[in-house]
Design a protein around this nucleic acid. Structure first.
Length: 478
RNA sequence: GGCCGGGUGGCCGAGUGGUUUAGGCAAGGGCCUGCAAAGCCCUGUACGCGGGUUCGAUUCCCGCCCCGGCCUCCA
């Protein structure tokens, strides 16, 4: 079984065919660090993290590059309205993105280039494009001559003759020195008060698209395997990247992977910092556990739109809670088993086949849930060897999705207070056991009710024929 | 207006030219339990509308309706 992925360029699912056997290079259009991340940004990171982790789990050596766009119109615009320098805003926001990624266990990229650190590569690339006759300098700006780019519009399915310069571009005066309204800026002449870098065309800064072409080639070579990003970037961003990279004579990306967006308010519109309706990650994390957030953002198919709502969070909490409960109960029964790759082969193969089929996480989770159901039955039947095998494969599957409840997530239960609480609960449990032994149900239930009111749930269980009691925290601190 | 993607049972969300038609949540019934909690079992027959192709379509084709994305600086 080999990994098959949807390719936007061909509008079909096709096998991933690495340029070099055993190695995969991935370039991801990372955030423009203008404002703190919302859950839409995180959905992007989680979806592509599944790709990253599945490539690693499949045995590939992965070079995963995700850039940071740390200088652009919006950053400059926002900074201009405060006392904060643009670079301070970009740095502060970059840290916020890193915190958000870390919170939901997104693997760090192999490389994380910044635009401001890539200016030399960018100007060199622009010079190369000019020398090949596909770009021209004009009044301190440099534009790509779109009409000279063969196949322009192929990636996004746009017909150049149908495209027309938008009113927005006209309003911004971006058509002023262009030869053709479709041409887009590779280099923008400095305006008063804006940061600039020296170049053969005078002081200025990169246009929007050129930085990705330059950074991708810097880190992955002139041709590389996968270029990924949000579906909203297909046009113009990725279309323009292809155009300028091919104009430079580069093969560029072999496979284009785009994920769907997060919507709010009944799917009415995507989240966007431009619209100001983003749900900020920091705010969400005050109410939603990070592992549940990861589950909610990662549970759907990466290409489907994802609706963000309280109901979606509640669904995720319930579904993930079921998995957590199984792992906790099974671990109590058989101990913290190391993952045994030879066991529970069928579940793993079902899981792997799902991810190989265009990263079908929904089907992969169905395999997880099926295994959990089998495991719960084994738990009830008291069959430790088979249970250990099932627990092992469940945790192995969850590890690929970064959703193993054990170990990798911070405990919300208060860390070092856990032992103290355990002792205090044990006191109450003993008192209740005495009451139950005396069939004093009123007193037994009163004791349990007081614990319930404190957020502690008791579960009467039977282990190897012996009655016992286990406790857990309710709700968020499960 | 142009280009994409989508409309699946109470909800979320996979999938498929027919046959045993994911998974989760919610609902009803049962088992277990002193009562709970956790768990297990059973039940529910869905594919926007209208045509067409076919022995047979939710799945393919055409048209329509509705929703979402993009059309130069959004992941």
């Amino acid at each position: 079984m080999t990994l098959r992925l949807y390719d936007t360029a061909t509008r079909s699912v096709r096998p991933l065919a690495p340029l070099q056997a055993g190695q995969v290079g991935v370039y991801v259009c990372g955030p423009t660090v203008q404002a703190p991340p919302h859950v839409g940004h995180l959905r992007s990171a989680v979806a592509l993290d599944v790709l990253h982790r599945w490539l690693l789990a499949s045995g590939f050596m992965v070079t995963f590059v995700r850039n940071v766009t740390d200088v652009d119109d919006k950053i400059l615009h926002d900074a201009a309205h405060t006392a904060e320098p643009w670079w301070a805003l970009a740095t502060r926001t970059t840290r916020a993105f890193h915190r958000a990624y870390d919170a939901v266990q997104v693997l760090p990229p192999t490389g994380e280039p910044r635009v401001t650190g890539s200016i030399a590569s960018i100007t060199a690339l622009i010079e190369r494009i000019i020398s090949r006759g596909h770009a021209y300098a004009s009044g301190g700006d440099v534009y790509l001559a779109v009409r000279t780019a063969p196949g322009y519009g192929q990636l996004s399915g746009q017909d150049p003759d149908q495209l027309r310069a938008s009113d927005k571009a006209v309003a911004h005066g971006h058509t002023g020195t262009k030869r053709d309204p479709l041409d887009f800026a590779l280099w923008k002449a400095a305006k008063p008060g804006e940061p600039s870098w020296s170049s053969p065309w005078g002081p200025g800064r990169p246009g929007w698209h050129i930085e990705c072409s330059a950074m991708a080639v810097d880190h992955l070579g002139e041709s590389f395997d996968i270029h990924a990003g949000g579906i909203d970037l297909v046009f113009p961003h990725h279309e323009n990247e292809v155009a300028q990279s091919r104009a430079a004579g580069h093969g560029f990306a072999q496979h284009w992977l785009h994920h769907g967006l997060v919507t709010v308010a009944g799917g009415a519109e995507k989240m966007s910092k431009s619209l100001g309706n983003g749900t900020l990650v920091d705010d969400v994390l005050t109410e939603v556990r990070p592992q549940v957030l990861r589950y909610v953002l990662g549970a759907g198919h990466y290409r489907s739109p994802l609706e963000w709502s309280p109901a979606a969070v509640a669904d995720g909490e319930a579904a993930y809670g079921r998995i957590e409960t199984f792992v906790r109960n099974a671990t109590d029964a058989v101990g913290d088993q190391p993952v045994d790759e030879a066991l529970a082969k069928a579940s793993w193969e079902e899981f792997a086949a799902a991810l190989d089929d265009d990263l079908s996480v929904p089907q992969a989770l169905a395999a997880v849930h099926s295994a959990v159901r089998v495991g719960n039955a084994l738990l009830a039947a008291g069959e430790p060897p088979a249970l250990a095998a099932t627990l092992s494969v469940v945790r192995r599957m969850l590890t690929v999705l970064a959703l193993d409840p054990v170990g990798q997530w911070p405990s919300a239960a208060g860390g070092d207070l856990r032992g103290v609480v355990d002792t205090l609960v044990a006191l109450a449990v003993e008192a209740r056991a005495d009451a139950r032994a005396a069939k004093d149900w009123v007193r037994a239930d009163a004791l349990r009710d007081r614990l319930t009111a404190a957020g502690i749930v008791l579960e009467d269980i039977v282990v190897d024929g012996v009655a016992g009691v286990r406790w857990r925290l309710a709700g968020h601190d499960r």
